[in-house]
Structure formats: C-alpha cells, structure tokens
Design a binder for these strands. Structure first.
Lengths: 254, 254
DNA sequence: CGTAGCTTTGAAGATTTTCAACCTTAGTGG
DNA sequence: CCACTAAGGTTGAAAATCTTCAAAGCTACG
C-alpha cells in the first residue's frame, strides 16, 4: 500500500498534467498549490485494452474518468438487445458526468483501442471543490460544457440529412483532435461504420456510402479507418450552423 | 429600492417554495436555515406573456431560471433563418445551465404561454454553494441530471422512427406533468405541431399524421392542443427502452 | 492460407418529406 | 351578428431519402 502510494505520487502528477489538469484547470487557472491538491486525488490505472469496460450501465458511480490517450465509446443497450452508441470520448474528455445525478451509471463505457485513463474519485473532488472556489467554478463549467456539447449534438441529429450528419461528425472529430494537438485533417477512426451509424442514427451502409461519395467529390480521402480531410471548407459548407443572432421575423406577441 | 426589497422578501419565499426550492432542495434536503439563505437570493419578476423572450442567444449569462408556471421553449436559429427547437421547459424545470460554460447564452428562450419565472443570480449561487456543501452537491446533481436528460433525448432522436419519437415525446410530457402534480393523461400542448416537429426532427405534417393515427388506434384523443392519453401502456410499448443490464454477446476482446 | 469481421456496393422496399389544397378556429371589424 | 382573415392543423399524392436485404471484396489475424 505504502509503496504503491510512493510510486503513484510521481506518476500521478505526470498523469494529471496531461489529462485532468488540462481539462479541469487550464481553462481558468487554479493556484499551483491547488493544482497539487487536485493532483493528489487522481488515480491512474493500467491501460485498458480494446473492448475492455471502463464501467457498465447500472454500476455504482464512484469516479469521473478522463481519457488520457486512446478512445472510449459510451453506449446503452435497448430491450431489443442492440447497442446504441451515446458518445465517443477522445483524449482530454471526461466520462461519467451523467452518473452524478443518481449515483449510478446510465450507460456503459468500453475502450475502442488501447486507452489510458485518469480516475477522479468524485467524493474527494466534491470535498476539494468546497474548499477551492475556483475548482468549484471549474466543475460547474465542466458540467455546463457537457450540457452544451450534448445540446449541439441534439441540434445535429435534429436538423440533419445523412450528409449533414456525417459531415458534422467529421468536423467534430477534426476539431477535437486539433484542440488536443493532433492533426485536424489526417486521423484514424477508432470506431467502426456500425458504431458511427449507431451514433448518428444512420444505417452503417449509409455511412459507408457517404464516405465513398465524399471521397468521389474530392472532399475526403478514406481508406478504411484512415481519414484525410482534403476540403474542410466544403465539409463545413454542408452543415447548417446555428447563429448567435436571432433574426427578426414578425414577433407574435408584440 | 428598500421598499422593493421589503415587498419581495415575502414573495420570494413563496416563490421559492414552489419552484427553485423543489428543484434544488427537495431531492436531498438542505437544512432549513440554508433553504432560507437560498430563498434570499431568488428573484421573481413579472410574468412573461406568450412570445416574450426570457433571454436571447448571445446575451451575457447572469442567472439560472426556474419555470414556476407556464411553459418556455429554447431554440437556436440556423444560418438559413429557420428555428430549431432545442427544448421545452415545464414548471419546476431549470433553464440556462448550458450557459455557465462560457458566460453566454447559446440559445434563446421564449414563453409559449403566460409564464412565471424565478431568477437565480448565478454568482450568488456559486458563493452559497461554496459555503453549503449540500447545496454544492445539489448543484452538481442538477447539472448532471440535465446531462442525463439530454442523453436520453439523444437516444430518443437516435434510434427512432417517427412513431417512436412522437410516442416518446408524449410519454415524456406525461411523466413531467405527473411529477409536478398535473394529470398525466389529460393535458394541453402549449407548443404548435411545427415546434414539436422541429424538436423531434420531423415535418409538422408527420407529427399531425401520427397524432391522427394514434387517435384512430384508440391510443389518444387529440383535439388541437388538448391531448388525452387513453392507452399509456400501448404508447409505452412503442418505444424502445434502454436496459440497465448489458447483454452478453461475444466480447470482441476476451 | 483460411476464416471472421468489416466494408463496400447494388437493387428493392419502406418511411418520411415536400408540395398543395382544404379545413377549422379565433379574432376583427363592418 | 356575421363575414373575413390569418394562423394553425389536416389530408392526399408524388418525390426524395434512407433502410433493408443480399452478395461480394478486402484485411488482419491466427
């Protein structure tokens, strides 16, 4: 036990610097000593292999998880036995936020490839947040960000043709890779066409066909899991963007 | 000023008891004096009329809002000028949680009918949360609940035929009315077919047709905005429910 | 090298949207 | 009090989109 702690204390800091730290702290700085206090509660486990579960629907909620490297999918299963992909989680992104609510995971999470994870015991995170106002603020922002992100996803699933959905999906991946320092135009999909389809509510064949079409149109180069975006502008042009400015058409009440 | 405060102090408590209180406090009790401290920051404005804005996309975020009576829709506008309904908010439900993230509202909110609202200044709520651990916990739960709720919505939009979507929509309304003490089987829709369609990503005609069909099948009685659910069981049977138990089919990794 | 698991592609079928017309209700003003 | 209008709702038919079913190709792994 003691030994494990000694070993992990160093590792923890390293782990924290590149995952929980960037997620929880960077957006609005904590004081260095507060960062250390946060570091101290982070746990880092051995990497997950492709197909390993991070948690399962119905399990008790204890930790938030931050993806360090690799990729994770979250999903539910319907009473008809098939899987519904709820989300894909890339490095720097947090899982488990939906489970705070009732202390139980509402979906399962599995590694799509070899994946390193940081573990944040939620009860300790709450204690810490009580004592560090700026951490509390970060936590609120983190949760809020997740809400915004899902609202965006809904808007995407909401107003979209298959073309728009696949385009949005690729743009989303591109932006998320970019934010974490990877190439925005050349990356590998860690998920199958099936999983993409489940996520976007499209048949896997439709996803495949769209990839092919985008390639024919010179927008992409796709070779199985390897995607290169050749014309990001045209891809962007396919999706309907929400504006922040409300247009004034006759207001029913005034 | 002084007079306004005197007047509002009483009103506030009443307002709080039936909106922010039930949302923020009831799920896991705060101590009575803490409830009073929460009460003290709640503001209550004059009711909104149908069509009035509660906030607009792009505005600075200052407050969370709790619907006391009535109904509110949130929506964005696309660069093509049409409106995308993001959510409907019934009594007891909270708006604005997505805006904590970057201090700016990402969608607009408008009253669908005459609506009373409680206003919670977020900065004061944060201060209070720092000092009242159980309130902080409630806030985390509240945010998490919103995430879960949106994940559910995504799952709904995700794996659904038009029939499932409309059925789920009605079930959702039914449950939310029930939770707040209204009839679960007899209610008025405060939104138009157009708005329902926008929310569910269906043409308004499709929504209308489904209502008609459900009525022909004896599941509903619909007369414009007035809906009666005659066979909730059959309605439930239409939607694919997520299970909490993950089925074991061949695990790709083991 | 063979098999299993993705992926791609084609063609038929189902669902949903679009366009258009018509109906109903509530509100307005003659 | 009634006709008129505007907004929302319903209904039908054609067109577009997406799914399903089926078959075949490709890769990776043992």
């Amino acid at each position: 036990m003691a030994q494990k702690n000694v070993i992990s204390l160093d590792k923890i800091k390293v782990a924290c610097r590149d995952c929980s730290l960037s997620t929880l702290c960077l957006p609005m700085g904590l004081r260095p000593d507060d960062v250390d206090r946060l570091d101290a509660i982070v746990k880092r486990n051995r990497p997950l292999q492709r197909g390993d579960h991070l948690f399962r629907a119905g399990e008790a909620f204890r930790n938030l998880y931050v993806v360090k490297t690799g990729a994770v999918k979250t999903f539910t299963q319907t009473n008809e036995g098939d899987e519904q992909v709820v989300g894909f989680h890339l490095p720097g992104e947090v899982l488990g936020l939906d489970a705070i609510q009732d202390g139980q995971h509402g979906c399962s999470a599995r590694a799509l490839e070899t994946t390193a994870i940081c573990e944040l015991p939620f009860d300790r995170l709450e204690d810490l947040s009580s004592n560090i106002p700026s951490l509390q603020h970060q936590m609120f922002r983190l949760l809020s960000k997740e809400i915004s992100h899902e609202a965006e996803m809904m808007a995407l699933l909401g107003r979209s043709t298959a073309e728009e959905r696949v385009a949005s999906f690729l743009i989303s991946l591109s932006e998320r890779f970019k934010r974490r320092g990877f190439s925005a135009t050349d990356f590998f999909l860690s998920m199958s066409r099936q999983e993409i389809g489940s996520y976007l509510d499209l048949a896997l064949e439709t996803v495949s066909r769209l990839f092919t079409r985008f390639q024919d149109e010179g927008i992409l180069k796709v070779e199985r899991k390897h995607v290169q975006i050749l014309d990001l502008e045209r891809l962007n042009g396919m999706v309907v963007h929400p504006t922040n400015v409300e247009r004034h058409h006759a207001n029913p009440s005034t």
